[in-house]
Design a protein around this nucleic acid. Structure first.
Length: 708
DNA sequence: GCGATTT
DNA sequence: AAATCGCAACGCCCT
DNA sequence: AGGGCG
């Protein structure tokens, strides 16, 4: 029966077809109508090649449709050679891979160094040291013809014919084997492939669909493990031989978080001796030596000569083939340090394929934006992998700029930021500089970014430090660095029309506002996408001049008592200036007005019970020497400095989350500064995000209790 | 801090 | 070329 | 309606 030719009619570039993840045991290895391919560890690309006439054009589109052509000029050159021999447009599906010294596809980590580069010079420099190639495995369009309805086997045949004698070092055809699954799997294990792709030879190409006619199975596992020590080098190796790594587990042997006071213990998981470059070894030793201690942090590590122990604080990513029955890593390879997360913020159980992923949030509030290049909602393979641009590397860049006292550019995972005057003193009392501010924000970003994600930011800018003249700025600058998040909130206009605002959530945007001299971070209580719905409300305890801080703590305790009575959860933090903030998470979609009503009731009650200490009086002159209990900030567009924000206070305060029982200790706002707050954060862990993501208040229930 | 405007 | 300027806005409470 | 407040 003659098959009519389907004409290509889409205007938009096609989205790639995706494979369904599959366990190895569930894989069909005995079906001769399956095609088996090597799974590559690179960047998926839809490639559109238009012929030289009328004008050659090559596009290299990522899963999200971003054109990566400028980042891989050597591949584009190869594709242009192909274009010269074409008479019609072709669309290919493939994977950009890094090549190792032998010209074989290498690991994703090699590619990562290429992914963020913007400048032509950088790209040229890297293309010499990290060559790349395009591995093509499907043909979607040839001339006017849409091949996607054809069976895969037919498309592969057409692809083979098209690329015949046209492949090169840079442009390769992905190999496949029809049937013989067991043999392919054996080869894959022998050669250490990342994984296998298994495709139904009869299936059409379904753009943008994760189909079960394509399966992917991982042969490697990945885990995040805690470094507990290292061993002496042997032979020609310098620095260390291997890292000794482990996992925190609780009394029942389940993976656990090393929370303060818990009985979590560190279980030895083996030595990791492969995957290090010389540079990585010396860098690691630099970080490990300061953590050295004399006793083993492991409960169960075998003793041997040449072992050195460290405090179990550093986390690393390890790729390995499987867990041995004794709970040790088989074939472990070091991938990198996990210092892109805050102290203790990680899931120490790692992502090793075991069913230990924490349950999903009940709703999508304030979760950290995927910082991956490809953005959110992409194929798991890439989104699981953070770009390896460790926070420490960013802090080092900043330190270099500040030491040199020079302006310069800062390379971040999501863009490039020009930094000026890193040595300018922002806090004369302590001599802290703009560079100190930028470094602090870079370090705290894993905890801070979720707090401001998707929220419009009001800037109060201090370009000349905390003693200089300050001004507010709501409207985003006309031009911002590429990658900085600017959005218009629905219905938000002023005389100049729609109001573009800076939206928090990315490291680039965070450091950009700091570069502009915005010392504190002041996010809305609602998110840009739903401006009328407050995610939380706050009560601001602000002592009048001369009021001892002990009284502020008293008022906070009374507020807390009222909240506990109503069964309302709340979070406490210093404002970073002179007072305290109490935040109350709200159920989804709660209006500002009803949230504010709750605060008003509590504030008024406390003030009337303790009139000498607390007041809700708006007129400053009539407040006396009391603590002002301000419930008025709970209005759309109003802000408070957020948790982990620096402040323009004389002492360079940081808004520091507190535990309620700390109100009984003699703590003061001045105890937590830009210089020392991080030390505390390392020991307390992230006190803020868990509470604000915890069970929110359903106001109807509270009002029910109020009514009695 | 920075771009636009005024001197 | 140098100096200067603008960079927020509005809902609430009390009078 | 106007002023102070944040």
């Amino acid at each position: 029966m003659a098959r009519t030719v389907q004409l290509w009619r889409d205007e938009a570039p096609p989205a790639p077809m995706l494979a369904t993840p599959c366990e190895l045991d569930a894989l069909n290895l005995d079906n001769s109508s399956m095609l088996y391919e090597q799974k590559f560890d690179g960047i998926r690309a839809i490639v559109i090649v238009e012929p030289a006439h009328p004008s050659a054009r090559v596009r290299l589109l990522s899963r999200n449709g971003n054109d990566k052509a400028t980042q891989f000029p050597e591949i584009v050159r190869a594709l242009r050679e192909l274009a010269a021999q074409l008479s019609g447009t072709v669309i290919l599906d493939g994977e950009v891979v890094a090549l190792d010294a032998r010209g074989q596809p290498a690991s994703f980590t090699a590619l990562q160094s290429r992914m963020h580069l913007k400048g032509a010079m950088d790209i040229d420099a890297r293309s010499a040291t990290v060559p790349t190639a395009l591995v093509v495995f499907d043909l979607l369009r040839e001339g006017v013809e849409d091949l996607r309805p054809l069976p895969l086997a037919a498309r592969r045949a057409r692809l083979e014919y098209l690329l015949h004698v046209r492949t090169s070092e840079r442009l390769r055809e992905g190999l496949y084997v029809a049937g013989h699954g067991r043999n392919v799997l054996a080869q894959a294990k022998r050669e250490g492939w990342e994984g296998l792709i298994v495709k139904d030879a009869d299936a059409p190409y379904l753009s943008g669909v994760r189909s079960r006619t394509w399966r992917k199975v991982k042969l490697h596992k990945t885990a995040t493990l805690v470094i507990g020590g290292w061993t002496d080098p042997k032979g020609t190796r310098s620095g260390f031989g291997a890292l000794m790594v482990g996992r925190f587990t609780d009394a029942r042997g389940k993976p656990a978080r090393p929370a303060k006071g818990s009985d979590a213990t560190l279980c030895y998981a083996g030595n990791v001796g492969g995957g290090f470059s010389d540079a990585a070894i010396s860098d690691l030793l630099l970080r490990l030596r300061p953590l050295a201690r004399t006793t083993s942090p492991f409960v169960d590590a075998p003793r041997a000569r040449g072992q050195h122990w460290v405090d179990p604080r550093l986390l690393c990513e390890v790729r390995f083939s499987e867990w041995t029955p004794e709970g040790r890593l088989r074939h472990p390879v070091f991938l990198g340090l996990r210092d892109d997360v805050g102290p203790d913020a990680v899931d120490p159980t790692g992502r090793d394929g075991s069913p230990s992923r924490p349950a999903q949030q009940p709703r999508p509030r304030a979760t950290m934006r995927e910082s991956s290049l490809e953005g959110a909602g992409v194929d798991m393979d890439a989104s699981e992998r953070r770009p390896y641009l460790p926070i420490t590397a960013i802090v080092e860049q900043l330190q270099l700029l500040e030491d040199a006292g020079r302006d310069g550019s800062l390379t971040l995972p999501d863009g490039v930021l020009e930094v000026t005057n890193p040595k300018k003193v922002f806090w004369p009392a302590s001599g802290l500089t703009k560079g100190n501010l930028l470094r602090y924000y870079a370090r705290i970003s894993p905890w801070l970014l979720p707090v401001i994600a998707d929220r419009p930011l009001v800037m109060k800018r201090y370009p000349n430090g905390v003693l200089g003249k300050a001004f507010y700025q709501q409207r985003a600058p006309d031009t911002v660095p590429a990658g900085v998040n600017v959005q218009v909130v629905e219905g938000d206009e002023d005389d100049d029309g729609p109001m573009p605002r800076l939206i928090g959530g990315s490291l680039l945007t965070l450091l950009y506002v700091a570069q502009l001299g915005a010392i504190s971070l002041d996010p809305w209580f609602s998110r840009a996408a739903s401006p009328a719905a407050a995610d939380f409300v706050a009560i601001d305890l602000d002592p009048m001049p001369g009021v001892p801080f002990a009284q502020v703590r008293d008022v906070a305790r009374w507020v807390r008592e009222a909240l506990v009575m109503l069964d309302v959860p709340a979070a406490l933090k210093t404002s970073g200036s002179s007072g305290l903030h109490i935040y109350i998470p709200l159920a989804e979609g709660t209006s500002y007005q009803s949230g504010q009503l709750l605060c008003q009731i509590i504030a008024t009650a406390v003030a009337s019970q303790h009139p000498k200490v607390a007041t809700v009086e708006r007129a400053v002159a009539r407040r006396g020497r009391t603590v002002y209990v301000d419930y008025l900030q709970n209005i759309e567009g109003k802000t408070l400095a957020c948790a982990y924000s620096a402040r323009a206070s004389q002492f360079a305060g940081v808004s520091t989350p507190l535990q309620w029982d700390e109100l009984d200790q003699d703590i003061r706002p001045e105890d937590f500064t830009l210089e020392n707050a991080f030390t505390r954060f390392e020991t307390t862990g992230d006190l803020w995000n868990p509470i604000l993501r915890g069970t929110p208040v359903d106001l109807r229930a509270v009002i029910g209790r109020l009514g009695g």
